[in-house]
Design a protein around this nucleic acid. Structure first.
Length: 279
DNA sequence: CAAGAATCCTGTCAGC
DNA sequence: TGCTGACAGGATTCTT
């Protein structure tokens, strides 16, 4: 579920509470996630000191003293909850937990178990097989219209699918791709190879803007997503097309002057767009 | 190689 | 109220 803004928000929450702490009482309830927890994960966490955090795409990296980092992916339904009551009974679907030396409990909760946790050498984090093929970070200076244009050149697939492909740009998911395409006035059905040039020049700032605004709002909350402290993000109220089939988009007058937001299925996922303003 | 489909798993919600 | 089917924020792996 969580896309870049939600993962960034979670990472910041973890940093605020866990950075510098020593971990204890690590326990694994069930290791059979998308990929099984690595052998020895609990033992590695036990007594480790947390020395830093970083986000890459939709992954969280928690650096430990010593030479390795914990790589966390939340999948579709993953959630991390920090509570000041270590003795409370574990919530359903809490697969990994530990405590800090100042009495907080970290719980990794994921009903669908599409998430994963792994260990990776800190000196070579980006060499991990899950990170190695990722495209540029959309909020970095590296991500420019020229770079995006080059990544889209010659691709016959719809721009929607190309932007969901983490090799093109890292961290976008279904919601923010829909929102960014709407802001840029580009139809999700458009062939990717027709986007380079003027359209890419609109798309890059649109992606940046929607991600930045969503991070400022603490992400979008629906179903499973809450921040580690239990607060809800509120960017879902700022969606202009996602989940708004038949409604007026922010640009159009809406029915009857305009048919409103349309939903189509692409790559087995819903795309929401305004046929009048997105071409 | 590129693109689309199938797949993993559980919870929720709409409709009957 | 209860059952069934569709659908959900992801990303790999398998087929064409």
């Amino acid at each position: 579920m969580p896309e870049l803004p939600e993962v960034e928000t979670v990472m910041r929450g973890l940093r605020a509470r866990l950075d510098g702490r020593t971990l204890r009482n690590a326990a694994i309830a069930r290791p059979d996630m998308r990929w099984a927890f690595p052998p020895g994960l609990a033992a590695r966490l036990e007594g480790a000191r947390v020395v830093g955090f970083r986000r890459r795409a939709k992954y969280i990296l928690m650096r430990l003293d010593g030479s390795d980092s914990v790589l966390i992916h939340l999948g579709m339904s993953g959630r991390i909850v920090l509570t000041p009551t270590p003795d409370a009974p574990p919530p359903p679907h809490e697969h990994l937990r530990f405590e800090t030396d100042d009495g907080w409990r970290f719980g990794f909760i994921d009903p669908r178990r599409f998430g994963s946790v792994d260990l990776v050498a800190t000196a070579n984090e980006d060499g991990h097989r899950l990170l190695a093929g990722l495209g540029p970070e959309p909020l970095s200076n590296e991500f420019t219209p020229a770079l995006l244009s080059a990544a889209l050149a010659g691709r016959r697939t719809p721009i929607k699918a190309a932007l969901l492909d983490q090799r093109t740009v890292a961290g976008l998911g279904n919601i923010y791709v829909c929102e960014a395409l709407h802001r840029a006035g580009i139809s999700p059905l458009r062939a990717a190879h027709t986007v380079p040039g003027a359209r890419a020049a609109r798309l890059v700032p649109a992606i940046r803007a929607v991600l930045t605004e969503a991070i400022e709002a603490g992400g979008s909350s629906l179903r499973d997503y809450v921040q580690p402290d239990g607060e809800l993000g509120y960017f879902q109220h700022a969606w202009r097309v996602y989940g708004r089939e038949g409604e007026a988009c922010s640009v159009c007058p809406g029915p009857p002057a305009c048919a409103g937001v349309r939903r189509v299925v692409q790559s087995a996922r819903s795309s929401f767009y305004c046929p009048r303003t997105q071409r």
